[in-house]
Amino acid sequence: MIRRMDDLDVMTESGRDHEIAAALAALDPASGDPHYWLRFRSWVMSSAARELSRRRLVVRLTIGDVLESWARALVPIAALFAALAGLLLLRDDPVGDLPPIGVEELLVSELEGSTIPARIANVTFAAEVF
């Protein structure tokens, strides 16, 4: 009796047909060349090297750009604040050198360039306003 291929129930667990799969295996380039897929992958990888390298560069540049933009804004502002702080320190410095004086002493002592009575002449009293 001739056994027809249609009659064969030769499915694997995954549903593959043993007979058809065995026949189609002849179309797998690795059937006659065990290293075929390794060479295939190597060819693709060597051809893709430039694009992969470009992508790595883009990622690095993006991080660098962010840092640079931060630095660009922060460094001048920090320098400006440092300069202002330096100026303030220099201006305030003589005040720290003045000797402590009492209220009475202050009232009778001469201010630099003018006396207290001269200053008082410029004072407007509340009674004159109202």
Partner: peptide, 22 residues
């Protein structure tokens, strides 16, 4: 990972799909 240019990741994708692509 391949979008960032990671060679190993792209290589694994090639290995995973080379037979079906063929």
């Amino acid at each position: 990972r391949a979008r960032k240019g990671e060679e190993v990741a792209f290589g694994l994708l090639v290995e995973r799909y080379q037979r079906s692509a063929y």
